[in-house]
Amino acid sequence: MDLLYELVTDYTLRTVALGAALLGMVGGSLGSYAVLRGRSLIGDAVAHAALPGIAGAFLLTGSMNPLVLMLGAATTGLAAALLVETTAHTTRVPYDSALALMLSAFFGLGLVLMTYLQRHAGASQAGLDAFLFGQAAALVTRDVYVMAALGGIALVMMLLLWKELKLLSFNPDFGHSLGLPMQLLNGLLTTLIVVAIVIGLQTVGVVLMSAVLIAPTVAARQWTNRLGRMVALAAGIGAATGVAGAVVSASMRNLPTGPTIVLCMGAVVAMSMLLAPERGLLWRMGGPRTAAPSSSNSSFSTSSPADS
């Protein structure tokens, strides 16, 4: 009860919880598409690749304005994502190697720029730490407004392009045969995912970002077989675990926010994978007349009343 009271009255906790909720909501919904397309780890690469963008933006403008830094982060994040796709498409270097390479090389460049800034422009180590692990406690109202505005735009775009993005994720060749510009849509989706990552960096940081995109989706997927419900549920799980992580971390000393959020998400994933009806592991162990979900050729017993 005390916590609930604080959540409403305590400025810091309220701001952090709002930020975490936004991050979880936007990350969870857009992350769904990354996971469905077999691009789960793109978030990891984009998040790491944001560092040189942030440092570069600061170096060029001298500004600490969150919008300027986010623009920088989005630029290099998107560049890394495109380089990964180009490398994997045009050469024999496998996708995951391209991902690991771009991730670490961009991060290395960011580290060079950051250490250069620290030693020459007097920037503090704190900036780098905040970027790595997030610094949710430092969120201010203005940050939350920026997150809400950018995240809102990304979600509206996702809803407007709902059926196109669904087709892109399920069967891009067929979408192409309908005359839809699948490559453009692919670029757009990547941009939306980059936005989701960039607005979350200050809250959870680089290293844990991939979990924010993946965990809510994986949890939600176990409970429903419909894309719409899954994305909505992922957004809800993301927001709820975000708030839960913020509250739990505020209630105990020495419990950093980002990792706490990720651990909450991990718990929900584990619970979903065990308990969800039909797909859940315990459910599958219990019932004899259940089908393994991932085997595409499984013939389903037609006697079960699945039609409505």
Partner: peptide, 28 residues
Amino acid sequence: GTGLVREDAAIGLVFPVLFSIGVVLLAR
């Protein structure tokens, strides 16, 4: 192996959770 999650998603789930455990242990 559960068939519920693809490999890349499994990687992206496991290491942040383990890393978070490490950070929390360290902090506390």
